[in-house]
Amino acid sequence: MSVPVVSRRREVSGGSARSLLTTLLGEYVLPAERPVWTSTLVESLALFDVEEKAARQALSRTAAEGWLESDRVGRRVRWTLTSAGRHLLAEGAGRIYGFGSGAQEWDGRWLVVLVSVPETLRDLRHKLRTRLTWAGFGSPTAGVWITPHLSAEADAKLILDELDLSSQAMSYLATYGALGSERAMVERAWNLADVGARYQSFVDEFSAMRPTTPDGFLRAQTLLVHEWRRFPFLDPQLPAELLPAKWSGTTATDLFNELHLRWRTRAQERWSELAGD
């Protein structure tokens, strides 16, 4: 059995059929622990204006990545999550539902990673920046990467090993000293204004959403989770004392938890109807 291919870019991509399919698999298929018909997935994706051809292509490509396997029952095809697919989706669900901006306790220490890549190796520099950024690191100045999450050192080591840069890197734990401003360092390392604006857009969109029909609840719940999936990769999840005042991420976290609970039963009921349960 092939190992599923997953990338953080695909996990947070906005409107692709495959990204929406991943949300459906994680929100409805994974908890149900039973196969799902092609028609169920095609009809569900149609709620988001995904055409049947694109839906079937998304299924085929997701299966090719090792997330799904199919079998025939008469003239119909049903899909089952592979063991590796279940593992990745369960891991993603834990990340999504356990995520809360500003909720982490912090002992004041920073993980600092020093790694320098020559300007002439631009492609390698770009890969390093992209990978460390997706892992939650920020860079206040060239060659310096920081995070308040000390456990992220394992992620950094994996990235540096894969890019063959470990021998050129150093890491250490530190508290901020007397020079300069810790908050100014944070502002240079991360674009919190952009993240905050994205959170506010999430709040504006979903606080105004009022589903009333079975399809409406299914669509609203799926969109809620689909949009929320972005934030664990966009937000470095800094401790509350490092965040701007009236951080919109706190409001967004509360709204997500409230709406997910409020809409869940009606959305699951509609999914069960489509699935023929």
Rank of each mutant, 00 (worst) to 15 (best):
E105C: 08
H126D: 14
W134P: 01
L121F: 15
E105W: 10
D123W: 14
R86Y: 00
G92S: 13
V144N: 01
V144T: 10
A142H: 11
E105D: 13
Y97Q: 11
F99A: 07
H126S: 15
D155R: 10
S116D: 15
A58R: 05
G98C: 08
S101M: 12
T141Q: 15
E153G: 03
A84K: 03
V144E: 03
G138R: 10
A103Y: 11
V115K: 08
G136K: 11
K53Y: 10
T82C: 03
A93N: 11
A156C: 06
G66C: 04
S70K: 09
A154W: 06
V42C: 07
R61Q: 14
E153M: 09
R76Q: 07
F137N: 03
A142F: 06
A156E: 04
D71S: 14
E69R: 02
G143L: 03
R56F: 02
T62Y: 01
G98T: 07
R72K: 11
E65G: 01
A90H: 00
L114D: 06
L132P: 07
V113P: 01
R122I: 11
K157I: 12
E153D: 07
W106A: 07
S116N: 13
T141L: 13
W110N: 02
E43L: 09
V113I: 14
L88A: 01
A55K: 04
E43V: 02
W110I: 01
D155Y: 03
P118L: 11
E153R: 12
P118M: 10
T40R: 04
